[in-house]
Design a protein around this nucleic acid. Sequence first.
DNA 1: CAGTGGTCTAGACCACGTG
DNA 2: ACGTGGTCTAGACCACTGC
Lengths: 240, 240
Amino acid sequence: MSPPDSTDVRPLYAKVRGELVERIRSGVWKPGQLIPSEFEIAAEFGVSQGTARKAISALAAERLVMRQQGRGTFVVEHTPAHVLFRFFNMFDADGELITPDSVDASATVARANASEAAALRLDAGADVVRIARVRTRRGSPFIRESIALPHQLFPDLAQTPKLPNTLYDLFQKSYGILLVRTEDRLSAAAADPDTAAALGLAAGAPLLRIERLAFGLDARPIEWRVSLCHLRAAYYLARS
Amino acid sequence: MSPPDSTDVRPLYAKVRGELVERIRSGVWKPGQLIPSEFEIAAEFGVSQGTARKAISALAAERLVMRQQGRGTFVVEHTPAHVLFRFFNMFDADGELITPDSVDASATVARANASEAAALRLDAGADVVRIARVRTRRGSPFIRESIALPHQLFPDLAQTPKLPNTLYDLFQKSYGILLVRTEDRLSAAAADPDTAAALGLAAGAPLLRIERLAFGLDARPIEWRVSLCHLRAAYYLARS
DNA sequence: CAGTGGTCTAGACCACGTG
DNA sequence: ACGTGGTCTAGACCACTGC
């Protein structure tokens, strides 16, 4: 990333943090792996334990690592359960997190259209992987969504025979891409005929529309996703 | 709040933080006021500067205070601009924060109905202040919302002649109640005839429904608000 | 028991804003 | 020049985990 130079005026702990992030981004430290202790990191970078601690604490606040007293610090591992808890924000009327299933997922490669290229900041002519799917809860469809990803980062994703329900763990394990931040833009929309048919509704029914942009470690947009949701008594929860 | 006792096993910085929170909650430190320096707080509580610093940093992370290098630390002041930036999450298609106006606001006092009592955790028979209003942008109505507040906390609010556009600054300045956290539950709904008329729409038009619960310093729900929004190209932004 | 993260101290120097 | 918050150090002890 940015090489150390004499004009770098960032605090020491920020530089150490940057080096640690790079090790996670590049895969030197794998998902779920135990990283060195505060003292070892301090010794390696020639800083005090307090400074190493501040760098690691920053990573913990960004949820790139998990600290456990007495055990050590581990690179975050995007298991399906973790991904749902962290990135899926829909709850039932009784406050229970919804765990959706995914059916009918199909992935294709195509030239990015204008909105995809703009959302993912792609060069003209770049390809995207498109995923279209319907998600169900207790057997009945409630979300229809379409996803676009830069083809360059996911070269053989469209050939994957059976796409899993949660994608972000696949992104981390198979493609080395860790999603760390999302921006969801929410609005309401009337169901178009296709979506109404897919969700078993009358055309014109009100749907929650979620347009999500997910970002990776280098702050680049990795995923663009539009979800049309028929929530019944459920809701999307946004905190603070 | 919780008196110091010998079985209190919280870390020192957490106890100091609690004392500082109490000073803000009780109004000993007023909105916008400069609080003592790290060294003064450290001396007062008999801890080191590092521990006082950690307590104050926790308050800054919760956005109860604002730190400014070279100037000092100030109790957060909920000005209208600050409240919009912090608690209003709607943006125009071009990414600009929407600054709504408020018209037709009316406040009344009534016995809490079942949903109000449940949301605000009120005792049976308690009263609420109800505010109903329509919010406009550039002259055209786009949000119809109804708000419920515990009457006990806002005894004379219903007599206030002209309610301001942003309420949370009024809550802090006139009633000493600082809102620190919100939970927004979002869904889609078809416009009922009344709402459609208020917003100039056809009945059945899809609206974004936002049900907000806002919490004060003692983690008690203070405000329950239901907003029905006709956003056109605008959206509600939820980060991470 | 050894090793880890979590807390706490005492002191130093720096960067910034104000008078 | 002074006082503020921001960084950094070196060392101590505690609480928890796993052998």
